[in-house]
């Protein structure tokens, strides 16, 4: 009975969806509306008017910057949410989990230590090169965050706690939205539009600086948020 209901529900979802996608413009055809309406402008003029050769980055940071402000806000929300749910929980542990897991093997320790500087370098590269190659602030930040997680695994809790800067921690956690809003306001002052970037040859440097600032902000903020979420979740071990 229950199984029949589930199958009926799945069919009720799948059949209309299949009928619908069959009628969509053909996949991969260059004449589909998706490729003829808005996107050509991005492709033709994105590099000059949005200041990034990687058009995906141009769309993210410039044409649809407000979406990305929303995106960094979402990731900050996730951190605030995890902290609000987990921090200061009244200890009503129903089951005691083992206090510590297996000791980390020497090989893992060694490899993480050796790779760490290269990972840092790579993450900085990904952040700073986002406007010419695939990558960008969030991707680079995630790599840095992953490094913090890897280091946490091979360290004692006290050592790991020192990995993240203690004092300005909460400012850095908010770095991504803050950098975005600051750039937005700078754009407002320079061009009269929120999140506007100066266009033109002579002000190209200013635009590049602004884009780089946002990328670094997103990178730092993303890394801090990911590391914080991980640490908060691990704290109850």
């Amino acid at each position: 009975m229950k199984r029949a209901l589930v199958i009926a529900l799945l069919l009720a979802v799948a059949v209309p969806l299949l009928i619908a996608v069959a009628d969509l413009p053909p996949h991969g055809s260059p004449d589909a509306p998706a490729h003829t309406h808005v996107a050509p402008r991005y492709l033709e003029r994105g590099a000059e008017e949005a200041g990034a050769e990687n058009i995906v980055t141009a769309v993210i940071l410039n044409y649809r910057g407000l979406d990305t402000l929303g995106e960094v806000t979402v990731i900050f929300t996730a951190m605030a949410a995890v902290l609000a749910v987990l921090v200061g929980a009244r200890a009503v542990t129903a089951l005691d989990t083992p206090a510590s897991a297996l000791p980390v093997s020497m090989i893992v320790r060694f490899i993480v230590r050796v790779l760490a500087p290269f990972i840092v370098l790579f993450s900085i590269y990904v952040v700073l090169n986002g406007h010419v190659t695939p990558g960008g602030g969030f991707q680079g930040g995630t790599i840095a965050g992953a490094l913090v997680i890897a280091l946490t695994l091979i360290m004692s809790d006290e050592q790991a706690a020192r990995l993240l800067p203690r004092r300005p921690e909460r400012v850095l956690q908010a770095a991504a939205p803050l950098a975005f809003i600051m750039t937005g306001v700078t754009g407002l002052l320079l061009t009269g539009d929120f999140l506007g970037y100066p266009v033109g040859h002579e002000s190209a440097l200013v635009a590049t600086l602004m884009l780089t600032f946002v990328e670094i902000g997103i990178g730092v903020g993303g890394a801090m948020v990911i590391a914080t979420i991980f640490r908060t979740m691990g704290a109850g071990r």
């Binding site: 900050f76 909460r170 908010a174 939205p177 803050l178």
Partner: peptide, 15 residues
């Protein structure tokens, strides 16, 4: 933008 800015700074202010 104003409430977003306020929100991300709230943990800093309430530290």
């Amino acid at each position: 933008v104003v409430p977003i800015l306020g929100a991300v700074l709230t943990p800093v202010v309430g530290q």
